[in-house]
Design a protein around this nucleic acid. Structure first.
Lengths: 210, 210, 210, 210
DNA sequence: TATGAATGAGCCTTCATTCAT
DNA sequence: TATGAATGAAGGCTCATTCAT
């Protein structure tokens, strides 16, 4: 990678970071391109060399940040000594919990992602990383399913239901303590997630034992 | 209510209707006050006699429309001969189903509501009607709980979980057929709702029988 | 006409005047709306209350200025004691000559009009005045034809040919002395105009004598 | 001409061609340098190695295209068996007619040339070819005059008047059918051209017979 | 000769809001 | 209560040109 190429990566990354700063601080629609480039220390025209428009940078940010949440969760959890021994239900709940805690600690990020996320964009984020080291969560999920001794009916819908539930619930509970605090919500929420998983769980795979 | 009072109500109502038309057609941020007042046939200044600003009319609209969804659902269902005999689980699923079908038939409305709804605004919509004949769903819900022979743990959270799940899932399934069509999603979705309800359902109330 | 109405007329007129100043000084494409409103002493938004865009004000200006050229020519010439006695050929040449002299004296105007004029716009200018007292040259021309004892074949094409010839020729001769000075060109030009007129001139009208 | 020299010519020619494509398709001011270089497949900076700026390439294009019109007309007509026998009046009318038909068949070119042509640039085009095989119309015209048995008063002005007349008239008639279609205009137009020529035509040259 | 990333002034236009009438 | 002319900051975006490589 030549010097010039590195420089370009750097610039794109700077723009993404400063844009994120502004989006989370004062919201997407109140952030202007001028704001972004001023903070990034580049000219306005430069912005348009890297991104088609404001929506483009937003979508790339969401993809990137979502991916990052999963990467952090997975790489943290994989280090727990008991990870490999856990059943899929437990694994999923732990991943969710880890992500929720990340969001709880970074409410600006939660606000930004929730307001701008759609399942389509999200699915995309999980499969096509923006930056090179973004994790591909789809692979991780598939591995979990494979490792499980059980078969699963419609794993995509299962994930979808879980994510929609979690994403709406967290937004409200973390940011507004509505209808209750996150801590109060968690048991119920995780209970519901387990119910969803179990209701999609089928028979033992041939030649496997629980 | 004097003639003048009626006239005012009429004007407010006209503004709400034309604003809704524009918001659902081209979105909130692309609708200008000019658009609204032009369609409503009043002067720009007049708008500000009825609403504080653009956000004000949007919020009132969401409240009103959400309320209307419930009112329509409940008043339709109450006419079914078997309504009174249904258990609460069945009642809730039917209400949800009715609303989902309304939204499926009116996707512009779904789009508008989903993009702009938050639990806080929503709860508000269900308890404090904007226009006089908007139903108070909180009362209906409470009545359902009272009619049920069972006790319920944390009914507000239960409703919250259900609504967050449904709202995210519908948005994606109806508008984008993601991760599957509405018809394909329904069994899973309603199954999950029933799981949530059952997991909150407690003992028989004293002196009641199932 | 109310005070407010007068004020609006005044503002439109001011905008037209300052726009003309800029267009003729530094050209259409190099004049910005900012330039215009700054000189006119109004806010930028105000411009758009009076004109759709830059093209709109340009077209209105051309119409207005073209009309004015004819009005000035005709009203000047009508005051000559011999005007009524002149034949149509002579009248037309005098009108053209008067206009050419106006343009010779106001080369910025010539430059502006020539670069932006098209026959369509021009015909429009001659028939539908922008401001109330703009003359309707079409009426004057028709009157000339009527007053003439001769019939004319295709008078619109005749006028068209004359105007296209004059407009191209003047532009070059006045502004660049190409292929010769205006004074040197005039005999030839007017000779050609007379030829065009005569070639369209037909028989005596019934019951008329030359 | 070395290989390198050829390569340069080729690049210049490619740039001219793609620029022409864009100018005629969407107009001069709406064509950007980016558009041109992208189509030409060269880098932006390269453009400035061949042309001073956007105006430079436009002017060169006009010169080239105008020249081409004449070259095509003359070389076509010279092939007619009767060409040598024609009088100058007839020759000029045929050249004009040929050019008009070329423009009628290529209205984008007409539009581009008319909007950007001035007598100065035009005269330049006819005398100083941009590319090597562009014809020098001035020579052809002079030859015509020489071949004619008649003397001509002020042949440059004569040509000037004809061209200004034709250029304005064609623009309007071909592109807008105003004030009438090209076919309807032609007799009048060519009649006028003949009148102009005849009015410049003088005595027989000494020692010549008609 | 050729490249193309970077520039940044400048463009047109929109629009929520105010206020004199 | 109602009007609608006026505001002017702010917006997103373009593009001719430069210059280090």
């Amino acid at each position: 990678m030549g010097k010039l190429e590195i420089n370009k990566r750097l610039k794109e990354s700077t723009l993404l970071n400063t844009a994120f700063e502004h989006f989370t601080t004062k919201g997407f629609s109140k952030t202007s391109i001028s704001d972004i480039v001023a903070s990034a220390g580049v000219a306005k025209g430069t912005f348009y060399l890297y991104f088609k428009d404001k929506y483009d940078i937003r979508n790339k940010l969401i993809s990137h940040k979502s991916s990052q949440l999963f990467r952090t969760a997975v790489s943290t959890l994989e280090r727990s000594p008991d990870w490999e021994t856990l059943c899929i239900e437990e694994k999923i709940v732990r991943v969710i919990d880890n992500i929720i805690e990340q969001l709880n600690a970074n409410q600006a990020l939660l606000n930004f992602i929730s307001k701008n996320l759609s399942w389509g964009l999200f699915k995309n984020a999980l499969t096509s990383p923006v930056l090179e080291d973004d994790v591909n969560f789809a692979d991780v999920y598939e591995q979990m399913l494979e490792d499980s001794p059980y078969m699963f009916r419609d794993p995509e819908t299962m994930l979808f239901l879980i994510i929609e539930l979690v994403s709406g619930a967290c937004y409200s509970a973390i940011l507004y303590q509505e209808p209750c605090s996150l801590e109060q919500l968690k048991p119920d929420l995780y209970g519901t997630i387990r119910l969803i998983i179990r209701s999609h769980q089928g028979e033992l795979k041939p030649g496997r034992s629980a």
